[in-house]
Design a protein around this nucleic acid. Structure first.
Lengths: 229, 229
DNA sequence: ACCTGAACACCGTTCAAGT
DNA sequence: ACCTGAACACCGTTCAAGT
């Protein structure tokens, strides 16, 4: 966090940097995260980031091969900050913590989720999350293969949630969507219309995520073999 | 499908179009889908599509306000093609069909999933999918609120799966990822390393999706109140 | 090694103009 | 209404050059 504040300063003004070393990869990553938080992904570009940092665009390429590599580093930095549980204690609260933290991290940069979707993420920071999840599942008593399958299910659910839940839909769009649903022919879309009528489709906040998480953990609990005794 | 073939012809060559009407929105949508299937999302641009169609770039803007509107139409067309079950019969196989179809549709255009993630999708074609899913859940005996929550869980899982499962990772990258995992310090990443060692992380094909789907449907089945008698 | 401006090969979209 | 080329305000990245 010190590094974040430092870079914020660099990013904001035209403070004279030390003559020995103008920049560092970490500073660029921190500035990128600050930029994304402030202006959103659509506003982000290498040129704008460089301007923000008060350096020439091509300077960034001294530290990162290309834009993708920079974004990978941003993701890794975000993942490294998640507070993961140690390998002890009952599996279920541990798994809950891992997935809530993962979701929290993803929600901080929802725009990034959108783009970094295709390539596999194998940076050390990101792998910590998978490790913590797998450990909890193994400690629950699942075999390696079952644990891997269960982790992918949990991971995809959480990622899907972060990516496809419109976090802060502006009110006008929300009204519009609701009006669209209510205007549907009820013969063809009976359940959609019924849902819209009672406003249940607009369920927000933590509840939908927690509902799905509990559903999955219940199901995983049912897979666990009873303790031998 | 007739319209698809028609448009393919237009898209491919420089066949002289009728003088009365050069193009239609449907033709543009079909050409976009063909283009995406053939060249992928990264290669797609309004300019290239226009070139492909043999028209000026700005002609496309007669039919669609902007690129987003065109992509929305592409998604709607894809959703409209899914084969959804009628509202009869036992809920579980119906739900399985809805979600398998949804996944199939998303996998046809994996690149699109990536981009169209933020805005809510409320086109008629897309709503059919939600309607079919909700109907099955309601018929299973869930209340409207529970059904809505369960649907979102299933939907996010499936979307997450389509978006974050590297479908056809090229072999060299796959090897690379595996090597990275195996090179991790086993004290810090014991489960990751163990998984990589037995190749379980690379599980592909239908199994991971089916595993998660079964897990979720089991859990939903457990929510269903026993039939009153 | 670190930093740079100019140039290249692109974008989506606005505009003014044509039929 | 449908179609268009030119122009505008951008991109990411290569290159050749500077320190």
């Amino acid at each position: 966090m010190t590094s974040t504040r430092q870079t914020r300063t660099v990013a904001r003004g035209s403070a004279p940097r030390s003559r020995t070393q103008a920049l560092s990869g970490e500073q660029i990553v921190a500035a990128t995260r600050a930029f994304l938080d402030e202006h959103g992904f659509d506003a982000f570009s290498m040129r704008r980031l460089a301007e923000h940092l008060g350096v020439g665009t091509m300077t960034l390429y001294t530290y990162f091969r290309d834009k993708d590599e920079l974004l990978d580093a941003v993701i890794d930095a975000g993942a490294a900050e998640l507070r993961l549980p140690p390998r002890k204690g009952p599996w279920r609260p541990r798994l809950e913590q891992v997935l809530r933290e993962l979701r929290r991290g993803l929600e901080r940069h929802p725009d990034i989720v959108r783009l970094r979707v295709t390539r596999p993420i194998v940076s050390p920071g990101a792998l910590r999350v998978g490790e913590a999840g797998l450990e909890a599942l193994r400690d629950a008593g699942l075999g390696p293969r079952e644990a891997a399958l269960a982790w992918r299910t949990l991971f995809n659910f959480t990622f899907g949630f972060a990516a496809f839940t419109p976090g802060e839909t502006p009110e006008p769009e929300r009204r519009q969507a609701r009006a669209t649903l209510l205007a549907l022919p009820p013969e063809e879309y009976p359940e959609m219309v019924a849902l819209a009528a009672e406003g249940a489709a607009a369920l927000g906040g933590e509840e939908p995520f927690e509902f799905g998480l509990a559903l999955l953990l219940d199901a995983i609990g049912a897979l666990v073999p009873p303790p031998p005794r």
